[in-house]
Design a protein around this nucleic acid. Structure first.
Length: 263
DNA sequence: ATGGTGGAAGGTCCA
């Protein structure tokens, strides 16, 4: 099974990039975040034509939105709200082998890393706490958790640990929330299982750089986590950095995981 | 300390 997670930053605008990704990587399952449109305007038909006949989409107007697309049948799981908001940040399915696949778009958190003055940061921290509760409660379930988690946990997940300590996505409180979450079900970070620190790993590069590749000021915000039983089947994990250089690219690169699972 | 870019909307809000 080849699985891709990608913050697409508008599924409609970047449909050609999704089509190109399918042609170049031939994934079985694609998890998208920030599809940025209502479910009804998701470009499902052209993706169905490429073999992704099974689609579970949760969009909303303007922002957020997540989708799971697969070549293989799955069972959609009931939609859940997080932090009492119906803001399309999570969608999940059960695969044929009984493994649950959860696709998350964690709040970015705004600019100021202080929950007392920044509601967006408070929302992000509350969201992480709620994920930890959910994860702990279901810890015996075989699961894959993917998505744009908007946190780069390790010093080598950012271009400068020192310079990003006060920057939302890499602050100690966020990193601690992520570590607590990982402990709740012994989640295996598939990228670091295969490429340990101190190798630098990034999945996002800002649009605001004059030359994103040259400055290479990246952060690893996109993740594929596995419960320990599923992690035994992990065969590969790569960031498909080339896609960040495509015409009209998303600011996130796809993360690709290969698992020894037949669907 | 600041501003830099990009998407959805058709206001600004969000990243």
């Amino acid at each position: 099974m080849r699985l891709v997670t990608w913050n697409i930053n508008s599924a409609r605008l970047r449909l050609p990039l999704i089509q190109r990704l399918i042609g170049e990587l031939n994934p079985d399952i694609i998890c998208l975040q920030e599809i940025k449109g209502e479910t009804a305007v998701f470009p499902g038909a052209p993706l169905r034509e490429l073999g992704f006949e099974h689609q579970h989409v949760r969009g909303m107007k303007g922002y957020n939105g997540v989708a799971i697309l697969s070549r293989h049948a799955f069972k959609p799981l009931p939609l859940a709200n997080w932090c009492n908001k119906d803001d399309a940040r999570h969608i999940a399915v059960e695969l044929k082998n009984g493994v649950e696949l959860h696709n998350f778009y964690v709040p970015a958190g705004g600019d100021i890393p202080d929950p007392a003055v920044n509601d967006k940061f408070a929302h992000k921290l509350a969201f992480m706490d709620e994920m930890a509760k959910w994860s702990k409660k279901g810890k015996t379930q075989s699961r894959i958790l993917v998505g744009d988690l908007n946190i780069a946990p390790l010093p080598d997940d950012v271009w400068s640990h020192k310079q990003l300590l006060d920057v939302v996505s890499h602050t100690p409180i966020e990193v601690e929330k992520m570590e607590r979450l990982m402990e709740t079900a012994d989640w295996v970070d598939s990228a670091r299982a295969l490429t340990p620190a101190p190798a630098k790993l990034y999945s996002w590069w800002s649009y605001r750089a004059a030359d994103w590749a040259k400055s290479d000021k990246g952060r690893r915000l996109d993740h594929v986590w596995l419960t320990p039983d599923v992690a035994k089947k992990l065969k590969g994990n790569e960031t498909f950095k080339a896609a960040r250089g495509w015409q009209q690219a998303s600011d996130h690169a796809p993360v690709v995981a290969d698992l020894d699972i037949k669907l």
